[in-house]
Design a protein around this nucleic acid. Structure first.
Lengths: 219, 219
DNA sequence: TCACATCTACTGTGATCACACTAGCAGTCC
DNA sequence: GGACTGCTAGTGTGATCACAGTAGATGTGA
């Protein structure tokens, strides 16, 4: 019932210490487990996740190539603080790609999926009611990717994952600043409703609206 | 006059052996310097580019996270052979993202840029006339990215680069199969023409048409 | 007290080595 | 002849160490 807690991977990767850590860090980033500006030290990550320095180094550097982390001026690796422009660009790309991904997924969504989505949405609403940002971010991530993964996409899906990797830390930061009320009106109900009705375009538009709603927080 | 021969990087990276090699391999991939199915050995790359095994290992693994390379069943690293579906998905994403990137870039394109584009286009036509696939791929890559880089995008541009990384090897392969005639009718002239006329939408449509033309090769 | 030098503890980088695993081939035995 | 075994040369993985560079505190001078 519970959706996959781990992020999918760009390509089939062997299951090594490096790839496991990479996946773990990806999920943590998407769920807002890091704050913008935070310094990510290879050796710290290694001890934190109880692996060697080598797997940590590879996992962290992979995240840099994905744009999820970056180098500071003094060559330290940090969680980037998104500029207003860049954040806006991410949401624009999200709206385009995720709407398309949803369109691809539509035909493969069965009733069990809609049940799962409604169940996740209930937890999201509960998290909002309690002002629990960590739960909210995790379940919101799972809500969207439950849909996107059904698309079976090998190209668009990895791109969208990259967007979420960059988006996660700043999103939590923004939500923290604005309080839980700022995310009170999502469009998840419209999403599941349209799915129940078999309304493809309504479904895609609800996804687009949900993402666009995120843009409002920036104005 | 000549456009930058090196690919831009996702984030500002310090100039190390690893990042230099990474950039070199990126360009080589985009320009079709590898063939689908080819085995990429870390130690071979290291000796080929005269660096240590460590930078080679990092650069190659970065390309795996970017989807440009992948693991074979026996954990060897290979250049992926794109399935029909995946190739189609790439071209779809290219059309969406690159059209948008062009729209962003439009306002920053000055006469000198149009001159440069026309000059590159001449070389492309010469390459086609001579059936020189290597020159064609390199200049076609430069034509498009001369435009895209002007957009100053920090999000869409890296995504498009990832698409080209995956697209490059298979594109050359397809062109080889079909011969130079298959790429004879691109829309670069329409692109520069629309730019001369200050016609934004005509410009964006010409870019889209140029990419769509690539889809025809698949049918 | 302020400015400058120094020292220390950290950062990422890259080389080197041991290890586990795989493919291919040669050899051997049934 | 055919099937099996075992060796060899290759693969990527991960630990460890030396190195260069930086940030910040500490100390020392004027």
């Amino acid at each position: 019932m519970t959706p996959e807690p781990t992020a999918t991977h760009n390509a089939f990767s062997p299951d090594t210490a490096s790839t496991r850590l990479h996946r773990a860090l990806r999920v943590r980033l998407c769920e807002g487990g890091f704050t913008p500006g935070e310094v990510i030290s290879i050796r710290r990550i290694a001890s934190e996740y109880d692996t060697g320095t080598m797997p940590a180094r590879e996992a962290v550097r992979w995240l840099v190539t994905e744009g999820a982390l970056m180098f500071s001026d003094s060559r330290k690796i940090i969680v980037p603080e998104l500029s207003h422009d860049r954040f806006h660009e991410i949401l624009f790309a999200r709206k385009n790609l995720e709407t398309e991904l949803s369109r691809h997924a539509f035909d493969d969504i069965v009733d069990a999926d809609i049940d799962a989505l409604e169940w996740i949405d209930q937890r999201i609403n509960a998290a909002i009611a309690q002002g629990d940002l960590v739960d909210y971010m995790r379940d919101n991530y799972r809500f969207h990717f439950h849909i996107y993964r059904l698309s079976q996409s090998r190209v668009l899906l990895p791109l969208v994952e990259i967007l979420w990797l960059q988006y996660g830390p700043s999103m939590r930061y923004i939500c923290t600043r604005w309080g839980a009320s700022s995310i009170a009106d999502d469009y998840h109900r419209e999403v599941t409703q349209a799915l129940r009705n078999g309304d493809r375009e309504g479904f895609c538009q609800a996804i687009a609206a949900d993402i666009e709603q995120g843009m409002m927080l920036l104005e």
